[in-house]
Amino acid sequence: MAEQGTWKVKVGLAEMLKGGVIMDVVTAEQAVIAEKAGAVAVMALERVPADIRANGGVARMSDPKLIKEIMAAVTIPVMAKCRIGHFVEAQILESLGADYIDESEVLTPADEEYHVEKHQFKVPFVCGARNLGEALRRIGEGAAMIRTKGEPGTGNVVEAVRHMRQINADIRRVKNAPDEELMTIAKELGAPYELVKDVKRLGRLPVPNFSAGGIATPADAALMIQLGAEAIFVGSGIFKSGDPAKRARAIVLAAAHYNDPKQLAEVSEDLGEPMVGINIDTLREEEKMATRGW
């Protein structure tokens, strides 16, 4: 008998996206530009994070009509975001046939204490994390892919780097710890003990680890991959730049040859204006999206 929605098919799709670029799009036209540029998937949104920041107010799941239009316009996987803890938005996205749900801090959280229980869904979930404990809590709830949170909508890669380095440092600590220390580490991280043991055995997260939040250039994408990200999410960085099609293409090429500086120099040439960007230390604490979720 065929079995759908298993852990293997959920993680499997994440494995298939490795080495690729997932792009935020707000219209079917943008989705077509992203597909043409070589995106491995698109994230269907009503507003990119930079506009969510600028406009303020409550940011929610996109209009199903928009998601359906984007699914009809492209042949690559279509992801969509639900609010943290908003399991009904997740149910709606699953019924629409979204290929991945991002339970995302970019939207206004619907629950300040609890995330969605993700195992009960057939559709896979991706969640953001700033450290190993947060990543393993999300995996424990059923996330089949993790991405560093970074600080979305800023065009500033500094937080994505911080979160990736933190996760890497936490993994190194677990890997080098003797077995008798793992329970205490699990307690300190606030992470499920069994998953901490998995991390020690594998030397990495038990699901693919991608990067998001502030990636704006081909060099940013290559930096995150060299730091250990297995694929890249680009939000505002593409369609808030001067020449989205060209920049999108350049970031796809950078992801394919992330460790070849000559290639990176070539694709970085003459891309037009990048998105303007925000210095993180000018953000007030309540303006930071990365601190949403626990």
């Binding site: 065929a2 293997k8 098919v9 799709l13 298939m16 699953e94």
Partner: peptide, 27 residues
């Protein structure tokens, strides 16, 4: 179909012998 139709399937593949192959279909 889309990802929600992705599945694990035990599949007969006579060229490999009588034991079915455990397969993973993703989109």
């Amino acid at each position: 179909g889309r990802q929600v139709e992705s599945a694990e399937v035990p599949l007969a593949m006579p060229v490999l012998g009588p034991e079915p192959v455990h397969t993973v279909f993703i989109r």
